[in-house]
Every structure is written in C-alpha cells, then in structure tokens.
C-alpha cells in the first residue's frame, strides 16, 4: 500500500503529536495535564480516521470522546482537585504487584486471541462507501449488528440508572428557596443583609483574606468555612499594614472632619 503525499505529510505531523499525548497521559505530574494529553491523542486519532475516509467515525470520535467524555473527566478532576500525591499511596498491600500481574495476564490473553484471528479479504473503500459513508455505517449499525447495539445501549442505560439510584437522595422537606432563606435571616435577626464579604484592601482583594471589623479585628464570618477547614485562610496583617501606611501618607478620613462636620 502506498500513502499519498498529503496523507504522509499529515501522518508525519500528527503521529508524533499523538505519541506525545499518550506519553503525557502516563508521565504528567498534574492530573489536568494527563487529561489534556489524552484529549490530544483522541483528537489526533479522529483526524487519522478522517484521513482514512472514515469521516463519520472520525468526527464522532472527536465529538463524543474528546468533546464529552474527556470534558466530564476534566470536570471531575477540576471539581475534586485530584493531586498526584494521592495516587502514589498503596491502600491495599501488594496491590501494585497484583495489578501488574493481572494486567500482563490480560495483555497475554488479548494478544493470543488477536494473533489467532483471521480476516477475510477487504472489500475496498469504494464498495464500502458506495451508498455514502454515513449510510454505509447506518446499514451496519441498524442492519447487521442491530441486536449487538441494542444490547449495548440497554446495558449502558441500566448502568446509568443504577448510578442515579445510588446517588439519589429523597428530599424529606421542601427545598428552601432564595426567598425562604431571606425570610429566615430576617426572622432570626442575624446577618440580615447576608454574610460579610471577604477583605477588600487597598492593594489586595481575595476570598481567603478576612474582612476587618470596625474595631480592627478580623471577621470570621467573611471567610468560607471550607477554606478555614483546609487551613487556607490568609492573614490580613500585611494588607492592614499597607492600608495604615497609605492612610499615614494621605491622612485618615475617619479622623478629619469632612462633609457637614467640617
């Protein structure tokens, strides 16, 4: 078989990219980098399919795998904040060796099976695509292999329903709406206008820095309790010092009479 000029150029450019992506998946230290490496490999695979005139397969590969599946992965990684340090701890003793052994066994099984497989002579692209690429695939999916596909989809739907059942939680009472929260706040008389916002200083503005109360102490309520539990709360001392220095230069507005008091 001979490659055309354009196709071999494409292969020479894209193949190294796919290998780089695959290696990044294995060796990247950050989980997001690994996920992006995998997404790159998937996109390049899709491009290869398109170059081999399997347009439908290639576009679906990019659309479904890199567009939806990897995006879900990325969503979870970003939401949970997976660290590379977590994955290096062996939770079950001997897990790594058992995993390696089982992996090798699976590879041996797969290779043995694939090695024995025989293929009939190819029908050729022209005949396969005689009714158009999409119609050809549709004929296979909804004709020859319709039961396989229906069984697979039933399995997937069952799995999705099972996941929903496991994650489902019955609500015992009505979910409080924004108005309900507001009413409850006013009734209790505490934090009627909502919790105080985190610190906004002359040269700093971040959610992890507490706001200052009028007497100069920091407000615990202005910081998210998640940050407090993680121990990620910054101190306001530096910002306070800067503010005081600035006030020293420009004069303190609270001491000098201004407006009507002047």
């Amino acid at each position: 078989m001979k490659l055309g000029g354009a196709e071999s150029t494409l292969f020479a450019l894209a193949a190294p990219l796919s290998v780089i992506g695959a290696l990044a998946l294995l060796f990247a230290r950050k989980a997001v980098h690994a996920a992006m490496g995998m997404a790159l490999t998937m996109v390049v695979l899709g491009i290869f399919y398109i170059a081999q005139q399997a347009e439908f397969l290639g576009v679906i590969q990019i659309f479904v795998y890199s567009g939806a599946v990897m995006m879900l992965f990325l969503f979870v990684i970003m939401l949970v904040g997976v660290d590379s340090s977590d994955s290096l701890v062996e939770t079950i003793r001997g897990q790594r060796w058992a995993g390696l052994l089982l992996g090798l066994a699976l590879a041996a099984l797969g290779l043995a099976t694939i090695g024995k497989a025989t293929f009939p002579a190819g029908t050729g692209l022209d005949r396969a695509n005689s009714q158009g690429n999409v119609s050809g695939i549709a004929r296979l999916i909804f004709g020859n292999y319709v039961w396989v596909f229906e069984a697979t989809s039933a399995l997937l739907i069952t799995a999705a329903l099972g996941a929903m059942m496991l994650a489902h939680r019955e609500r015992l009472s009505e979910r409080p709406s924004q108005a309900d929260w507001s009413r409850a706040r006013i009734k209790s008389g505490r934090n009627v206008a909502g919790l105080p916002a985190p610190g906004v200083y002359a040269r700093h503005n971040a959610v992890d820095t507490p706001a200052l109360l009028p007497d100069g102490s920091t407000s615990e309520l202005s910081i998210s309790r998640v940050l407090k539990a993680r121990g990620q709360v910054a101190t306001a001392d530096k910002e306070l010092a800067i503010s005081q220095e600035l006030e020293g230069e420009t004069g303190d507005m609270t001491r000098r009479g201004n407006g009507d008091d002047k």
């Binding site: 997001v32 890199s66 567009g67």
Partner: peptide, 25 residues
C-alpha cells in the same frame, strides 16, 4: 464539505470549550 459537515461543527465546538475550561483552571 463532507458527508458529516454539520457534526464537524459540533465536534469543533466541543474542542473549543477546552479553551474556556483550561483558562478557568
């Protein structure tokens, strides 16, 4: 133009969102 041109738009949009998601992260 390809037989799956419209799907291509969806696929490219799906890849383009990586830009926004990665920017956020």
């Amino acid at each position: 133009d390809t037989p799956v041109a419209t799907l291509l738009v969806l696929a490219v949009a799906g890849v383009g969102v990586y830009g926004i998601v990665l920017a956020g992260w």
